[in-house]
Amino acid sequence: MRLRSTELAQNEVACYFSALELGLILLVMFVGDHPRVLPAHRHQTVILNRALAEDGELYARLEEALHGQVHSATVQELDLVNDKTIVDVRYAYTPRIHRPAAQATISAITTAARRTLSRHLPCIMP
């Protein structure tokens, strides 16, 4: 049995594997950079208006300011004279749910009314 195809030259094989490698690299970059893979992870440079040299205090202040969990913080500049800190931060953002003030007030009034009614009319209100 004999195959009738011609042999590939060395430069054709090199081009084939180079194209395959570039395609795989682009696929990996597309998947890794997709917003669904790490949707809450962010990276920022933050300037704080206090010189914070202690890691615990720095992380606590950054988590409070950024509303998330800090994974790493690299101090770029610590200026004790002007009292400022420049930090490169990587963190996971955790959105906070804010209820409008009117809705919170209505909810508080409704709860108070239920308590009053349940005290005065125990047979009607469960």
Results as ranks from 00 to 15, higher is better:
2 R>W: 07
7 E>H: 13
10 Q>H: 08
11 N>L: 09
12 E>R: 14
16 Y>F: 15
16 Y>W: 09
21 E>M: 08
21 E>Y: 03
23 G>W: 07
23 G>S: 12
26 L>C: 13
26 L>G: 15
30 F>Q: 04
34 H>V: 10
34 H>G: 05
35 P>H: 07
36 R>P: 02
37 V>Y: 12
37 V>Q: 07
40 A>R: 07
41 H>G: 03
43 H>C: 07
44 Q>C: 04
46 V>Q: 09
48 L>P: 01
49 N>G: 03
50 R>I: 05
53 A>P: 00
54 E>V: 11
54 E>C: 04
58 L>H: 03
58 L>S: 00
59 Y>T: 11
62 L>H: 02
62 L>K: 04
63 E>Q: 15
65 A>M: 11
67 H>V: 04
73 A>C: 10
76 Q>E: 14
76 Q>G: 06
77 E>A: 11
78 L>P: 00
79 D>V: 12
80 L>Y: 03
80 L>F: 09
81 V>A: 12
84 K>A: 04
86 I>V: 15
90 R>N: 12
91 Y>T: 04
91 Y>A: 04
92 A>D: 14
94 T>I: 02
98 H>M: 04
99 R>S: 05
99 R>N: 03
100 P>A: 09
101 A>H: 04
102 A>Q: 10
102 A>T: 09
103 Q>M: 10
103 Q>V: 14
104 A>I: 06
104 A>E: 13
104 A>C: 05
104 A>H: 05
105 T>I: 01
110 T>K: 12
111 T>D: 12
112 A>G: 02
113 A>D: 05
113 A>H: 10
118 S>Q: 15
121 L>H: 13
123 C>N: 12
123 C>I: 06
124 I>N: 05
125 M>W: 14
125 M>R: 06
125 M>G: 00
